[in-house]
Design a protein around this nucleic acid. Structure first.
Lengths: 346, 346
DNA sequence: TTGTAAGCGTTATCAT
DNA sequence: ATGATAACGCTTACAA
């Protein structure tokens, strides 16, 4: 793999490396003769010259690359989760449009701080987006931000870290509204299956919102009604079966996400139960397949692609030195009503 | 964002930069005194020293980064496709285990050659995995490989490009077997909905396999039976409705992928048709949700995570200078029978 | 056992 | 209008 250097271009064009740089970067006010410019351009073309990105980064101090940090447990997460890939796409396309590359960094329990720190400290990236970081990740993220490193935290509305720019959906509020939808339909015994362990702030938020709604309706939530999945539809099915087995008399389910909901629905069908007659269901995320569930799933709509784009756009802005004040954006999460909860309020 | 340099470490430890480098890299046979080593290590720790990756790359000629190239059309593809994210995860985790980062590069129709070429020519990456490249992408991929650039092509078994290492599933054979499953069940009028336009070799292969099976059974395939989707469940539903509207009397569907199948199933349910009684369906991919469809979807099982891991492992091996001969691996695609085609052969 | 110096490919500041 | 030269942070012969 031989690559041409600016030196070779200079030699071929009979000029100095400086001139090559001036021509190729269109440096203004340098009064390069048209003749010279042509010669340099021709030489570059002939040699297939492309500037070396590493040398450029070293000299300029910028890598034109950002990092995307995301949680990742045991293959399951990024493997099965439907939100992340779309977020990633949003981030990537937005960055691409501005000439930035994105470095993808799944973060598992095993290597908590190391990977990220290294990414930042080794000067490999100019900015970082952390998607749904856990509590444990937050201390060094906050440090990095404190040192002036451009950082966007997406999806964990932790307080007391005013250094970091953040974008959030109000998961708690959305979960409350999801539950209220069920309540308004007349349901009183409502189950919740969290989509993961609750050391992720996001799952805790949804659980909290669920409880908020129940409490506001003066309803006790029986511990037998809540269960924890692990992102997969399978865990949703198992949780549903467990809840059914406890014969807790629940008539509705607020699923922590749509994948969980799909699993629960399958378990219900297998048990010969009807949706929504025996069990009304609302999900969360509005994954592309949600509208194609049987029956079509009522769910809270998130916009991963848009959110990824916005996170990237915000990061780009910060890196460009605009927007000095710490921003804390809240996204809106609408309820989209389909058929999994039946027709209208009782 | 201030970062410590090896120079500062050297100063603090009262040694030269060379010594710092020797100590930190554990260069053997250099006989560094334990006392000195300790002092250097302490200084590095105290300063939070992390070597600058760009400088390191420039000096060593290696970036410890690979690129992942993938097709991408109009948001739809990476946004809705269920295969890619899992492949990506497999690639990333395998690379991570070897200390490699991965640069994610979606490639859309608009910027065909540019993005990839630049990635390679700018020396930003040490190797490249191209996932399902289109015919058009192949010429420069082949060039890069010809220049000795480590490259794995996954999923487009193009011939006449012996420079490139490739991994493939035999899509044509798999599609044939999927169709044969339907045939064995007694179906004669079988529809196919391709999951994308057929300038992707992979969708052409599946179409070809479908035709192979039909032809082997001495069956004509009516043009009214085949339709083209665009990755989305929605396009699957539309295609299904179109096929139904042509009242072509088909009794079975081989869907180009599972997402398409989900859409088709929804359209069927809406039309009051029963699966599998009115329409038997086999999909392709075995996405995580396939087993949770209503009814559970019979489909061809791909293993995106494993395939991604293997592609990465192979690339890593090539970059390490092992395996000189061009490898062309074929993966196996088993049929997994669930309930969307009914019980047993007629 | 440790230090000096050259080189990796750029850009940028000066002279000329 | 163009060309030396230094600087970016590191590795690695080679010297001492």
């Amino acid at each position: 793999m031989k690559r041409a250097t600016s030196h070779q271009v200079a030699t071929l064009a009979n000029v100095s490396r400086t001139t090559v740089s001036f021509v190729l970067n269109n440096v203004p006010g340098m009064g390069i003769s048209d003749e010279t410019r042509e010669r340099v351009l021709a030489a570059a073309r002939q040699l297939g010259y492309v500037p070396n990105a590493m040398a450029l980064s070293l000299a300029s101090g910028a890598t034109q690359t950002i990092g995307l940090l995301m949680p990742h447990d045991d293959q399951v997460h990024a493997n099965v989760d439907a939100y992340i890939p779309r977020f990633l796409t949003g981030v990537t396309l937005t960055c691409q449009a501005s000439g930035y590359k994105v470095l993808f960094e799944p973060l598992n329990h095993a290597a908590p701080a190391g990977a990220c720190l290294n990414l930042v400290d080794s000067g490999r990236i100019d900015g970082l987006i952390a998607l749904n970081p856990r509590q444990a990740d937050f201390s060094y993220l906050n440090d990095a931000a404190g040192n002036g490193f451009p950082l966007i935290v997406f999806g964990s509305n932790l307080t007391g870290h005013d250094n970091v720019h953040s974008i959030d959906a109000d998961n708690r509020d959305a979960a409350r509204r999801a539950t209220e939808h069920l309540l308004a339909l007349g349901h009183r015994r409502i189950a919740h299956i969290a989509f993961a362990h609750d050391d992720y702030p996001i799952v805790r938020e949804r659980l909290l919102g669920f409880r908020d709604a129940m409490q506001a309706a003066d309803l006790e939530v029986d511990p037998a009604w809540v269960s924890y999945g692990n992102y997969s539809a399978q865990s949703g099915a198992e949780s549903m079966r467990a809840i059914l087995a406890r014969s807790s008399g629940v008539t509705a389910l607020f699923a922590g996400n749509d994948t969980i909901a799909f699993g629960a629905m399958a378990a219900l069908r297998d048990a010969g139960l009807s949706i929504p007659d025996d069990m009304a269901i609302v999900g969360y995320d509005d994954i592309p397949l949600a509208a194609y569930a049987a029956p079509p799933l009522t769910t809270m709509r998130t916009e991963p692609f848009t959110e990824g784009s916005e996170a990237a756009a915000m990061l780009l802005r910060i890196m460009a030195g605009e927007s000095s004040a710490r921003a804390h954006v809240k996204a809106i999460v609408p309820l989209v009503v389909r058929r999994s909860c039946g027709a209208s309020p009782t």
